[in-house]
Amino acid sequence: MRVLASFEWSVIWDNRGPLWHGFTHTIKAGVVGIVLAYVVGLVLGAVRAHRIPLLNQLAVSYVELIRNTPILVQIFFLYYGLPVFGIHLETFTVAWLSITIWGGAFMTENFRAGFEAVPARLREAGYALGFTPVQEFLNVTLPIGGRIALPSTINSAISVIKNTSLLLLIGYPELTYVANNVQSNTFRTFEMFTALAVCYLAIVWTLSALIRFLERRLALPEAL
């Protein structure tokens, strides 16, 4: 193919500045989003697993609402819908907030499943030792259930990273935004998307390998 024959590595090298800039923005929004999504997921996952009245119903509504609407619609809703109430958010705020809200819903489900997989007799053993419900959660359910949930939460974290690309549509200058800009100025489609693909696949494949490693390392003995 002619396009491949004219592939110029120098195009990627010459644009390393903007690409690096975009990469840092992707990582910035992604890391903030993932950390906060873990917090949301842990708390609401505990609420769901222990069926704490009222909070449980609220958590279910939140999870179902987020899982059954596209994240792009959620981003637009935050970006264009909230200002009408005088809530003007910066682009970066919408960026991390939207992926936190989305990721939090998925992590809630991951942690709920993990916590519910902890056998009841282990929890009862905790109570028999005189633990309060909070102590029981921190000493029994969290370490065992969290361990069960960990691989699937990393899967959600991968999705959060991939979703940062959608922030291009509200003008957050992340990796896809930058690469798309460069390619529309230079028509270097193959070069720019090669760079993009390498960056995303490097992150995603590394995290996938981590999941496989953890699944082997953390596998609980059958007899649990």
Partner: peptide, 20 residues
Amino acid sequence: VEVWRGLPILVTVLFIFWLP
């Protein structure tokens, strides 16, 4: 499988759309 699953869909969409 790993490439198309690993890339954000938006990246794939833009790539195919801008292909000459």
